[in-house]
Design a protein around this nucleic acid. Sequence first.
DNA 1: TACAAAACTGGAACCGGTACCACTCTATCA
DNA 2: TGATAGAGTGGTACCGGTTCCAGTTTTGTA
Lengths: 337, 337
Amino acid sequence: MRKAATIRDVAARAGVSVSVVSRVLNGTGPVAPAKRVQVLDAIEALAFRPRAAARQLSQGHSDTIGLLLADLTNPFFARLADRVVAEARSRDLQILLMTTQEDPHLEGQALDTLLDRSVGGMIGTPTGHNVERWEKLSALDIPVVFVDRSIAELDQVDVVSIENIDSAATATRHLLDRGHTRIGIISGPLDTTTGVERVQGYEQALRERGVARDDRLVRPAPFRGDHGADVVAQMLALPEPPTGLVVANTAQVRVVLRMLSQARVEIPDDLSVVVFDDNPWTELIRPPLTAVRQPIDMLALHSVELVHARMRQKLPPAPRRVRVPAEFLERASTARR
Amino acid sequence: MRKAATIRDVAARAGVSVSVVSRVLNGTGPVAPAKRVQVLDAIEALAFRPRAAARQLSQGHSDTIGLLLADLTNPFFARLADRVVAEARSRDLQILLMTTQEDPHLEGQALDTLLDRSVGGMIGTPTGHNVERWEKLSALDIPVVFVDRSIAELDQVDVVSIENIDSAATATRHLLDRGHTRIGIISGPLDTTTGVERVQGYEQALRERGVARDDRLVRPAPFRGDHGADVVAQMLALPEPPTGLVVANTAQVRVVLRMLSQARVEIPDDLSVVVFDDNPWTELIRPPLTAVRQPIDMLALHSVELVHARMRQKLPPAPRRVRVPAEFLERASTARR
DNA sequence: TACAAAACTGGAACCGGTACCACTCTATCA
DNA sequence: TGATAGAGTGGTACCGGTTCCAGTTTTGTA
């Protein structure tokens, strides 16, 4: 097996210097039309492909984006990854994939690795910890975009997410409109922005209608594990159990539904349920679920677009906060009380 | 912002040569204990992290594995990606993610890119095309492992998959045992190994029981699109429609179920259904689905282990074919005829 | 026709590691 | 006591691109 051709082989074959070949490759300087053709022919003939590592070494940065997601087992993140990969390809960017499994320690390791690779940019769903390391990435001029969630302390970082407050308020109003006043909400952890904001939206809707907030009906659950199921069970065991439920923690939707099914809680007769995130399986569940659909393709599009623009320094330094509206889908899991 | 430290900075600070630092870093040669400590201290003090690109350039290969999956929207591949990422991390390998969307053209582009990046290895679910490019990777001594599916012509490539024939035979026998003789099967395209093998298993089970094969009940469907639904509809419109159905095409399970639900076909009363691949949502569907569960963690483990071993040239050249057994889960979607 | 500006070209340093090789210094053994 | 193996060390070429800069040619304009 012959060794792969290098830029010097191409230069020799085309009868020009490596500088010219490089300029043809990148369009970074003038090249006479005739020589350009010779170079292109030589590239073709030798099947030359520039080594990414060499370019990266001399330029100091790469066209690879680190994608740090919580958990690919969650269909929301899986579909997000799918779209991000597609958007990246259309911009000739590569995706280095890592997962945190919602574990700050793993997240820390992943961030270190990403630094070594001198990725050109980062898209991530932060666990909420490792603030110093995220800061360090930014300090090294590596563009970072948070998607879905963010970290409040890091207000210099770009964020792309859905309108969490509005969406939660809409979901809650939907239940209020149907006569429910005892409405439970399972949110993400309150040290994540999605957790906090969705609870805010919920509270806002209650306030609008003059319904008092009951602490026992507002419960966060971690993203990992089955804790959400326990929390719902506790709510249902209250003297005055809720008749409506908002599951605002995407990762807990499945376990909550499983628990309700096992406990023979009839939806929507015993309990009206709205879930966050609509995935292709929700419509196969009986009854089909009323859901807040997150526009995943928009989240992916904006995230990639944003890192890409920052990588090319096409954007003023001020941090961007992109908020895309989510769609509310009424199906059969919610009913008049 | 100060520039990041290089190996020469470390050498200077520790009062040694770069060779010594490199040896400390990689354990590639002897270093006096005292100097080792000095070097380690300097690394610590300067927060030095070796640049991956530089190492890759001089070594000619990288510790990055290209992961080329069909489609992250399919929970099977998403969970596979999740496990592959985890296995890779525990071996200090990185994952460069790409998707083919089942499109040979996109797959071709992705393979080209992977070549440029001089990835150290590849794990992929081939579309069945681009044979020359896969061969080229192998010819360049880049270890390739096919997972889930493979390409028959490329018999020199390692493969990790489930026991497709057995699994399909088991699923079919399960229906035969319950008195079904008109059994339909929706397989993957017949130019994929999973498609062919699962049909073989189906036929084998029929033969064992002396049931004649009816061509109209053996239908492949592409992985993309909703074609599987049409095919099932056609089967059900036959003069003698099937009473049992094996959906052996993971990607079509969802659309088939949706169609059955819309057509008000009662499962299992009108039709007993066995599906390939069990994902966390299948048990939430009414009725819970009888399924062939693919041991995704094993598929991931073996794939990564295999590329890793090949990357370190720890394996004899003969191609490995790892076949892991799949589990059969009886639930409520199949019943006696 | 003369001369400045623009287009074009190639040499070579550089990015940050790895690894080969030559050399020094001990320790061991006959 | 001298030969010798082997640990320990540093110098430096090399990997394959990019880019700066100085030098040459072409073009445009007065």
